[in-house]
Design a protein around this nucleic acid. Structure first.
Lengths: 287, 287
DNA sequence: CTCTTTGGTCCATAATATGGATCGATATTT
DNA sequence: AAATATCGATCCATATTATGGACCAAAGAG
């Protein structure tokens, strides 16, 4: 009870919901590894009893699950179901899956789909290539500050200049401490190069010899919806092949953008499903 | 403040989180149509200001969005992202997508994937067939009480007898009022038929001439993970073709079950993603 | 065996959520 | 066109609810 701000004029409220969903979001970054209570207390900025109480509420709703043995917390089945249902409005991954398959099949290298989330990019999908040497610097669920990584840089470069500055400022301390090769000034240079070339290149900036090419996917209004990227070892990413890869990616990006244009106006009226269940009927430990 | 139960011994707490997530779940049943505040007040069992306050909290977190014009509420992008990230543990749909494509391609009819959610089944995906006459009784996101519909009946039939009775009891009033052709007693008969035949048949019980066949998908421990189903007009669902369809579906169900067996033990330790963001830093209207 | 760490919980206190009442805006009716 | 109904949204005094320091048990670590 320190966080008094006293400004909250009226509006707002339901702060435990904010906190609980912040925790949920935080947990999502732990991926398959799951999160421990201590980690969540440390990184979530809430104390132990509060954290635990909110986690229990999330578990009750099915959004979260706790491994009874390891005591770790994982996203639950309800999160998966809601996401699947939401995918009809936001189904970038669904729409892009074919393209990722195609890209990895044609190039033999691993391809990725990333999106923006606040000031970071998140990898939504990794499509394995067949080539024997693969970089594992990026996995589904991994997050990096915008500008770090090829897809991430492609997205950042597609933002407006003032947004870019806001992002870089927000990420300043993280960049300086965690990514010595990627100071904000360096990223600004990379953005210029990206815009000029029409694609983003990560020449092993995060992991040596692990190069990648990224291409932004745009909404009809030109805002970035995400980015495709392809990663390989440097020997497979020299100038000539870069051109080939970009050409392939451009074809797929175009396809995705065409489908995206059809996805948005789904707000049309559909028949109502049947809705018998009555929530709000006081959930205790009654499950 | 009527709902005093006074029993809540200790445990529990964070009730607004319960309520908010109940609302979120409720909204998910409205699908592409979105939900209005009034509908949510009516069906959610909470009053208007409370409902609205919780909705605002959900919007702040990105789990929900409100159409600024129609004022309707829809699942938000954050829900989609979380679901995508959770899909590595619960990716039944991902695993089943190929099978649905195959089934619809081979049969020319529309195929579905459904799962259990509490005492209902929810359609996660509808894969269109090419045949000119198609039934639109089932869409992704639609919910029916367990036992209503072919996939739904297949799932119910795969449960244990005592679970079945619990489900039927919970759904009793809904079945009686909403589905005159599907009294609990009728469903019990259908279950017996389903278990004997090895597949579920819906002979136009919900919508005349709209028949469907359902086949349960099992976890390694035999609990149902969901169900495949194929729907068509009755003339395309006579005995001979039923056998053909079931044979095709069994092949696909086997494939899915094999992949499911590999999905579960993903609790392995993976490299940690980078986690710079600090939630819990008081979210107001600051966005 | 003791010390430390981690998961989990208790409970008096204080902060927060609650919902009846109210308001403005947009249909609907007469 | 006026009157009425409906709906979304918000206010604010009240009392229910969340908070977090302190504590406990269990499982490593030394």
């Amino acid at each position: 009870m320190e966080q008094r701000v006293s400004s909250t004029p009226s509006l707002s409220g339901a702060q435990s919901v904010d906190r609980a969903l912040s925790l949920l979001s935080l947990i999502s970054y732990f991926g398959d590894q799951g999160a421990t209570l201590s980690e969540l207390v440390e990184q979530g900025g809430l104390n132990k009893p509060t954290t635990r109480r909110l986690l229990l509420a999330l578990i009750r709703s099915g959004m979260l699950e706790q491994d009874s043995l390891t005591r770790r917390y994982y996203l639950g089945e309800e999160a998966y179901i809601l996401g699947t249902l939401a995918s009809r409005r936001y189904g970038l991954l669904q729409i892009s899956r074919d393209s990722l398959t195609t890209l990895s099949a044609k190039t033999e290298d691993t391809s990725f789909l990333s999106i923006q989330r606040e000031t970071s990019s998140v990898c939504l999908h990794r499509e394995e290539g067949t080539y024997q040497i693969r970089t594992h610097a990026l996995q589904a669920g991994y997050r990096h500050p915008l500008g770090v990584g090829a897809g991430s840089l492609a997205i950042l470069s597609a933002l407006q200049d003032e947004e870019i500055e806001a992002v870089l400022e927000a990420n300043h301390s993280v960049l300086v401490t965690e990514y010595p090769n990627l100071a904000p000034s360096q990223i600004r240079l990379d953005i210029a190069t990206t815009r000029e070339a029409g694609f983003a290149l990560n020449p092993g900036r995060i992991l040596a010899n692990s190069w990648a090419i990224g291409l932004a996917i745009h909404y009809p209004d030109r805002r970035p919806a995400g980015a495709l990227s392809i990663a390989a070892i440097d020997s497979r990413m020299q100038a000539a092949r870069q051109v080939e890869l970009v050409a392939l990616m451009q074809v797929e990006a175009k396809k995705i953008e065409a489908r995206l244009a059809h996805l948005q106006p789904i707000n049309g009226r559909l028949k109502r499903p049947i809705i018998p269940v009555r929530p709000g009927t006081r959930i205790d430990g009654a499950n």
